[in-house]
Design a protein around this nucleic acid. Structure first.
Lengths: 204, 204
DNA sequence: CGCCTTACATGATGACCATCATATGAAGCC
DNA sequence: GGCTTCATATGATGGTCATCATGTAAGGCG
């Protein structure tokens, strides 16, 4: 075995990445140290050379989840700005695709209901992430918005709530309705043009 | 020991009630059969006389959670009807009290992010509960609402999302802001009078 | 050439957990 | 008064899990 100079760091990052995906799909409790390390191609013993405990891993993983999410938002928004950026973000957020790929999805929506399972070590990272998302959203609102932070906070609640609900629900039709109704409502509330779409309650 | 005629049923109900509270506070995985039975004053062995498996217990508990929630809504709404009922519901839902007592709170908000942990047996009960809540909300909206079901679905997403977010967040001030902003936004969206409250972003 | 550090592997430990086979003890019936 | 039934208790089984002590191979440095 030859160890390059940053071997350990690379391994750590691979473990973190795998953990972030696992946490989003199976929750913080659903991740096992042994299974996680095996996924990375290692065995469970070496884990404690990288993290002091499972809780420490989760805290670090939550942090990287938010960093990845910020990068992803950048890719979605591209060079748009203001309300156009907000529209692109909302439209990409409330899709069946985002719903079905929680492992790459928004950490807020994934951790929304996991407050009980989330170790105390990981809480500050979550708070920071939520704050950042609210601030970002507020910055994209039209300049005429009277209280951008207030509106942004309400928009985030619906955005993440609708995605989480659409995931929790079993019935596909109900799930899609939840996504689409909130997408339209959010666009309207943010002062964006409404795409001409029939209410899914009426077409059949 | 004397067994009254409905002894078994009463025990079953006590187990269910305890399970419902545990699931809401610690999630489906956080409930242990042994600990649960001990809470009811029994030992773990008798459990399987009442439920075929832990998953079956959770499914039954989810069902009772929604029944309890419906009864609780009735108590909050009292003899109000229409928008007044809706206002009372929203105001009672987005409070620090509801946030801090998940064991007695809305099952939708508790199970929002637990989709991964929720056993398949319990999913239909959740769907039914969500549908019922949307229908109820739609029935309270002003008669002039163009598409009550569509609006109700969007309102539920924000309602449950805001409560879940306020629980997941560590910082008390942020948590209260999330509750209050969504409370005001929801009242406005439902066509209700806005109580005269300063934005918590501005007062300090 | 040989020692030491580094990155990981092996294997063990103790805790917890769902599940079930079997025992117990009381109530009601004959 | 013995027998059955029924709700619950006891104790075992097999599994999973986080954690840690110790072993091992390889590279770098003397």
């Amino acid at each position: 075995m030859r160890y390059s100079s940053d071997q350990k760091l690379q391994t750590r990052n691979r473990v973190l990445k795998a953990a972030a995906a696992q946490i989003r799909t199976h929750g913080p409790q659903g991740v096992g140290v042994a299974a996680l390390m095996q996924e990375v191609g290692l065995t469970h013993g070496g884990f404690y050379a990288h993290f002091a405990s499972k809780d420490a891993l989760i805290a670090a993983a939550v942090k990287t989840m938010f960093e990845d999410a910020a990068a992803q938002r950048g890719r979605v928004i591209e060079d748009r700005s203001g309300p156009a950026a907000l529209g692109a973000f909302i439209d990409s957020y409330l899709t069946a695709d985002h719903r079905d790929r929680p492992d790459r999805g928004c950490p807020v929506a994934c951790l929304l209901g996991q407050s009980a399972q989330l170790p105390a070590l990981a809480r500050p990272a979550f708070d920071t992430g939520v704050r950042g998302m609210v601030r970002l959203m507020a910055s994209y609102l039209p300049e005429t918005t009277p209280d951008p932070m207030a509106l942004a906070s309400s928009l985030i609640a619906e955005l993440a709530g609708a995605l989480a609900l659409s995931r929790a629900v079993e019935d596909e039709a109900l799930s899609l309705r939840l996504l689409e109704q909130s997408r339209l409502a959010l666009r309207a509330r943010a002062g964006l043009a409404i795409p001409n779409t029939e209410s899914p309650y009426h077409d059949h």
